[in-house]
C-alpha cells in the first residue's frame, strides 16, 4: 500500500466521520442528500460481498466493516431517528436516484472483467459509485448556502477520489504485477470530474474565508 492510497482511504474515512459527527452531535442532517446516502450504502453492500469469503488484510476487512456500518447508520439516522429525520430537506432532495441504479446494473452486465455474480456486482458498485454523488451535488446547488460540515464532507469525498487516481498512477509505474484496470480508472476519473465545479467554489470560499455559496 502506498501513501496516496492510504491518504485516499483516510480522507474517505474522515468524510464519513464528519457526516456522522454532524448528525450525531448537532442532531441535524440538513443539506445531506438521503438519495446519495442510499446509493452509497448500496455501493458498499454490492462491493464488499467478498468480506467474509476473501481475506486481503486486517486493514481491508476493518475498513470495509467501518464503511458498511457507517453508511447504514447514516441511513438509520436519516430515516428513523426521531429528531434527525425532521431536519431532512425532503422537498429539495428530489433527484430520482433509482434511475441511476438500473443503467449501472445493465452496464455492469455488459462491461465487466469476468462474468460471475460477485464480479458483476463489484463492477456495478464501481459504476454506481461514480454517479452516487449527483443527488448530493444537486441538493447543494438548490440549497446554495452550504454549512461548513456539509461542505467539508463533500470536499473530503472529492479529495478521496483525487488521491485514488494518483494512487493508480503510482501503482501503474511502481508495481510490476499491477495490470491495467480500465473499468476502475475511467469510472474513477468520471467521478472525480463531477467534483471539479464544487471544488472550485469550495476552495474560493476557504481562500476568502466566507461561507460556501454555490451559483444558482
Amino acid at each position: 500500500m502506498n501513501i496516496f492510497r492510504l491518504a485516499g482511504d483516510m480522507t474517505h474515512l474522515m468524510s464519513v466521520l464528519v457526516l456522522l459527527l454532524k448528525i450525531h452531535t448537532i442532531k441535524s442532517c440538513a443539506g445531506i442528500s438521503l438519495k446519495t446516502q442510499e446509493l452509497y450504502a448500496l455501493v458498499f453492500a454490492a462491493r464488499y460481498l467478498d468480506i467474509f469469503t476473501h481475506y486481503y488484510s486486517l486493514y481491508n476487512t476493518v475498513m470495509k466493516l467501518i464503511f458498511l456500518g457507517s453508511s447504514f447508520s447514516i441511513l438509520w439516522y436519516m430515516k428513523r431517528h426521531k429528531v434527525v429525520r425532521r431536519s431532512y430537506d425532503k422537498d429539495q432532495d428530489t433527484f430520482r436516484h433509482h434511475f441511476l441504479v438500473l443503467p449501472c446494473l445493465v452496464l455492469a452486465l455488459l462491461i465487466n472483467e469476468k462474468f460471475t455474480f460477485k464480479e458483476v456486482m463489484w463492477t456495478f458498485s464501481i459504476y454506481l459509485e461514480a454517479v452516487a454523488i449527483l443527488p448530493q451535488l444537486v441538493l447543494l446547488q438548490r440549497t446554495r448556502n452550504v454549512d461548513n460540515l456539509t461542505g467539508q464532507y463533500v470536499f473530503l469525498l472529492g479529495a478521496y477520489r483525487g488521491l485514488y487516481i494518483i494512487n493508480w498512477i503510482y501503482r501503474y509505474f511502481a508495481e510490476p504485477t499491477y495490470s491495467t484496470h480500465w473499468i476502475t480508472w475511467i469510472s474513477g476519473l468520471l467521478q472525480t470530474l463531477l467534483y471539479a465545479d464544487f471544488f472550485y467554489y469550495y476552495i474560493n470560499s476557504v481562500k476568502n474565508n466566507v461561507r460556501l455559496q454555490l451559483p444558482a
Binding site: R5, D9, H12, R47, D50, H54, Y56, N60, M63, K64, F67, E113, W122, Y164, N167, T177, Y178, T184
Partner: peptide, 10 residues
Amino acid sequence: DSQPELHDEL
C-alpha cells in the same frame, strides 16, 4: 478467484 490482488482497494 484467480487474481486475489484484483480488488485489494476499497
